[in-house]
Computed example of a mutant assay.
Amino acid sequence: MLTASQKKISFKNSNNANILISAVINFPEDFNEDKKYPAIIVTLPSGSVKEQMAGLYARKLSEHGFITIAYDPSYQGESTGAPRLLENPHIRTEDVSAVLDYLTTLPYINTAKIGAVGICGGGGYTINAAINDHRIKAVGTISVLNVGAVFRNGWANTTRDADAFPLLLAGAEARTADAKEGSQTFPLAPEKAEDAPNEEWKEVWEYYRTDRCQYPTAPSYATSRSLTQIATYDAFSKADIFLTQPLLSVIGSRAGTSWMSDVLLNQAASTDKNQYIVEGASHVSLYDVEDHVNEAVHQLTLFFQKHIA
Rank of each mutant, 00 (worst) to 15 (best):
S5A: 12
Q6N: 10
N13A: 09
N13H: 13
A17P: 09
L20K: 13
A23V: 09
D30H: 13
F31E: 11
E33F: 11
T43N: 14
P45H: 09
P45A: 14
S48L: 03
K50L: 12
Q52I: 07
Q52F: 06
L56R: 14
A58N: 04
L61G: 00
E63H: 06
E63T: 05
H64W: 03
I67Y: 01
T68D: 11
Y71A: 04
T80Y: 10
T80K: 06
P83V: 05
R84C: 08
L86Q: 10
H90I: 14
R92W: 10
D95K: 08
D95G: 03
A98I: 09
V99G: 11
L100S: 05
D101K: 07
Y102M: 10
T104K: 13
P107G: 08
Y108F: 14
T111D: 03
K113N: 07
K113Q: 08
I114E: 00
I127L: 09
I127H: 00
A129H: 02
A130R: 10
I131D: 06
D133H: 06
H134E: 08
A149L: 13
T158P: 02
T158G: 05
R160E: 15
F165Y: 15
A172G: 08
A174W: 15
A174F: 11
A177W: 07
D178N: 14
A179P: 02
K180W: 12
Q184F: 14
F186P: 04
P187Q: 11
A189Q: 09
A189I: 09
P190D: 07
K192W: 02
K192A: 08
A196R: 12
P197I: 10
P197M: 11
R209G: 01
T210G: 01
R212E: 12
T217H: 06
A222V: 04
A231P: 02
Y233E: 04
Y233A: 05
D234W: 00
K238N: 14
A239G: 04
A239D: 06
A239I: 08
F242E: 13
T244S: 14
Q245D: 06
Q245R: 08
L247V: 12
I251E: 15
G252I: 01
R254M: 14
A255H: 04
T257A: 14
S258V: 12
M260C: 13
L265W: 04
Q267S: 14
A268F: 07
T271W: 09
D272S: 01
H283N: 07
V284F: 10
D291T: 09
V293D: 00
N294P: 01
E295A: 10
A296P: 03
H298R: 15
T301W: 09
F304P: 00
F304A: 02
H307V: 03
H307C: 03
I308S: 01
